[in-house]
């Protein structure tokens, strides 16, 4: 095997390990951020500042009894969380996450391997990511339908409606930057914004950015669009009957998706991993991702969620027309 293949395998392992960890850590961050915003302390007692809370939660989830309801479709019930988690990670195959680096030669076996920033630098990266994320809707959909629970059914119905609707907005909102860059590769997006803050696409496509963010919230099932499992209305929606590890996989998937959306927003609209002045591009990139991630938590702390009908109204009557108009205008500008 050549150095790149070994490096790619290493990269895959890194993503699986680190992103999973970060997804878990995300829950800790979320609890902490929400706590501070509500003048609380959040988890404090497991480890220093409650840092080991995720470990405790993880141990709990892993050791919990695995319960499959009697009348559930066992195969699909077991499959659904895997779909969610798998699609979330598959989407990351086309994402730039860290700078490319070479493993020092003196290490045995893997020495000299080149670890790429992107696992698979395919030229239709953004399309691949959006497609895989769209496929991820099968997770909640099948989960809700397989568990033979009324709340689950309602949850999966909402999944179908919400994900399908906002898929349109996501696609249309990203279409405008694609038209400007003229490529589907995320590397090209990055390169197109290499010349400083002024070149960031967010300035050229503010509407597309806002639409993408809104749609991203909806795609990741975050407040104010967390209708799939809204506790006050439908218990836990599609995860009502899930517990333990399977339930954890849904959450790893959700947090991985949050990272994916954050990365896309950073790469497509906010200058990617280009260096800025003297600041390392990758450091900046991580900060950008963290900001978007933080934004999601911040919004959850500040805003109430919307009703399903309001959400559909927003999607089809406001966001979709805006996105179309934005594309038309962008197209005209590009043509000129």
């Amino acid at each position: 095997m050549d150095a790149l293949t070994i490096g790619t395998i290493i990269k895959i392992l890194i993503i699986l390990a680190i992103v999973s960890a970060i997804a878990g850590f995300g829950t800790y961050i979320e609890r902490k951020v929400l706590a501070f915003m509500q003048r609380r302390l959040g988890p404090m007692h497991v480890g220093p500042y409650g840092l080991l809370q995720i470990a405790a939660d993880g141990i709990k989830l892993f050791t919990k009894e695995d319960i499959i309801p009697q009348n559930a479709n066992k195969f699909i019930f077991s499959l659904a969380p895997v779909i969610t988690a798998a699609t979330a990670f598959i989407a990351m195959a086309a994402l730039p996450l860290f700078p490319t680096f070479t493993i020092p030669e003196f290490l045995p076996l893997i020495g000299g391997a080149i670890v790429p920033s992107i696992v698979a630098d395919i030229n239709i990266g953004i399309l691949f990511i959006l497609g895989i994320m769209a496929a991820g809707l099968y997770g909640p959909l099948l989960a809700g339908m397989a568990q033979s629970n009324k709340w689950g059914i309602i949850g999966s119905a909402r999944t179908a409606v919400q994900f399908l609707s906002y898929e349109v907005v996501t696609g249309l909102s990203v279409l405008a930057p694609i038209m400007l860059v003229g490529s589907l590769s995320l590397i090209d997006f990055n390169d197109a914004q290499a010349s400083g803050i002024g070149s960031w696409l967010i300035w050229q496509q503010p509407i597309a950015f806002v639409l993408f963010l809104i749609a991203g919230f909806a795609e990741t099932n975050r407040t104010p669009f967390d209708l799939l499992e809204h506790e006050a209305e439908i218990i836990s929606g599609y995860v009502t009957e899930y517990s333990g590890l399977r339930w954890g996989m849904f959450f790893i998937g959700e947090y991985a998706n949050m990272i994916t959306i954050s990365v896309i927003a950073a790469v497509v609209f906010c200058g990617g991993y280009n260096d800025l002045w003297f600041i390392s591009g990758w450091l900046l990139f991580v900060l950008k991702v963290i900001f978007f991630f933080f934004l999601m938590l911040w919004v959850r702390a500040a805003w109430p969620h919307v009703r399903p009908d309001q959400m559909m109204w927003l999607c089809w009557k406001v966001l979709m027309p805006l996105a179309v108009i934005n594309i038309v205008i962008t197209g005209i500008v590009v043509m000129l």
């Binding site: 951020v33 706590a35 915003m37 509500q38 003048r39 609380r40 500040a302």
Partner: peptide, 16 residues
């Protein structure tokens, strides 16, 4: 919410 977070983090205004 951001203001409260700052208050909580840096000014010790916590209710817990």
């Amino acid at each position: 919410t951001f203001r409260e977070m700052i208050n909580a983090l840096f000014k010790g205004k916590l209710h817990t």
